[in-house]
């Protein structure tokens, strides 16, 4: 009897101690998962849990994205998850995405999982034409994407039509040529066959090495208005800030590299970029909303931090990660040779 009371008591106290939670859905580039998130959790608590679940250590490139009134926003680390302007119905949904891009994918993306998530995200942007990619580069990229998915080309397995269901090229590229799907498949397969021996990780890295050389890779564009009221585009990326004409997102009219900017600030909708060089004029512009200004400033701070960090020695954590990745690569290569 006494035992029964004790066990009932401990059950009650356990029940009382259970913190209040809500359900969060996280959508990554290739998976969806749900977590019970405590009411008091801050953005960082949830983000760390997602990274731990994915086994991702190069966390600094990523963020949890949500959309509010057609504007994208990122979860802030020090603010409570529910303190954000997120729809309050459960599950509260976030997209786990790369927020910042490396300057050099080969040097900076160490873990296979990091490379894979970048590969999937950049491939989607290219196929959806968010990034302009010339036709010849699109074909070469498609051939690496096929190598990553199908492994080495084997004509006895990869028969005519094996790519029929795959989305491999941007529609714009397909429309530029009078070629049947079979002709595209033939062309892509000819290059795919050239990549024999490349592992999935290597093929994905080759893909990223090509993609990072396209002009729009890693650039976040924002519609702005200069002091004269002219509409322009502001681009924020790993190297700095860029100003574009509306009709040309490829070549900036002006650029401000991060190491030539003294200060960036905004008050209400007005944004100010103060160059380091005093002779260069201060650049002022207006964005569409205060919410957009917040996003621009967040991206500026994050990209600037990474820009400075890249120019210093690697942290112990990164050194260790790189050493592990090298060992792992060497081990895989040995195994392949043995086979």
């Amino acid at each position: 009897m006494a035992e029964a009371i004790t066990s009932r008591m401990s059950f009650t106290s356990l029940k009382r101690k259970q913190p209040k939670t809500f359900t969060v859905r996280i959508i990554t580039m290739d998976a969806e998962m749900e977590f019970n998130c405590e009411m008091k959790w801050k953005g960082k608590d949830l983000f760390d849990l997602v990274c731990r679940t994915l086994g991702l250590r190069e966390t600094w490139f990523f963020g949890l994205q949500y959309t509010i009134k057609d504007t994208i926003a990122w979860l802030r680390w020090i603010k409570k998850v529910l303190g954000h302007d997120v729809p309050k119905e459960e599950p509260v949904t976030f997209h786990f995405l790369a927020k910042f891009y490396p300057e050099n994918v080969e040097e900076e993306l160490v873990q296979d999982i990091t490379q894979h998530l970048f590969f999937l995200q950049v491939k989607k942007q290219i196929l959806e034409e968010k990034i302009y990619c010339p036709p010849e580069a699109s074909v070469l990229l498609a051939s690496y994407a096929v190598q990553a998915k199908y492994g080495d080309y084997d004509p006895s397995v990869h028969k005519r039509g094996f790519l029929a269901e795959e989305e491999l090229l941007p529609k714009r590229v397909i429309n530029l040529y009078q070629m049947t799907p079979e002709m595209w498949e033939e062309r892509i397969t000819a290059w795919y066959a050239e990549h024999r021996g490349r592992t999935r990780d290597e093929a994905e890295m080759e893909y990223l090495k090509i993609a990072q050389d396209t002009e729009m890779y890693g650039v976040n564009y924002f519609l702005i208005r200069n002091k004269k009221g002219t509409e322009l585009l502001l681009g924020v990326d790993a190297l700095g800030l860029h100003i574009y004409d509306l009709e040309n997102r490829l070549t900036p009219k002006t650029s401000f590299p991060w190491n030539e900017i003294r200060n960036i600030s905004y008050s209400d909708k007005e944004f100010t970029i103060k160059p380091l060089e005093k002779k260069i004029d201060v650049f002022k512009f207006n964005s569409s909303k205060l919410r957009v200004n917040k996003l621009i400033l967040q991206l500026c701070i994050g990209n600037h931090d990474l820009f400075m960090r890249r120019r210093k020695a690697d942290s112990l954590e990164v050194q260790q990660m790189k050493a592990q990745a090298r060992e792992e690569k060497a081990r895989k290569q040995m195994e392949r040779q043995r086979l």
């Binding site: 036709p135 010849e136 429309n175 009078q178 090495k209 050389d213």
Partner: peptide, 27 residues
Amino acid sequence: QPAKFAPYQKALREIRYSLLPFANESG
């Protein structure tokens, strides 16, 4: 700064030429 697509220039040139005969006039 290395040229864009530096290690892939040869492959890209070959693909460009191979696509050329099929280009739409508007393209």
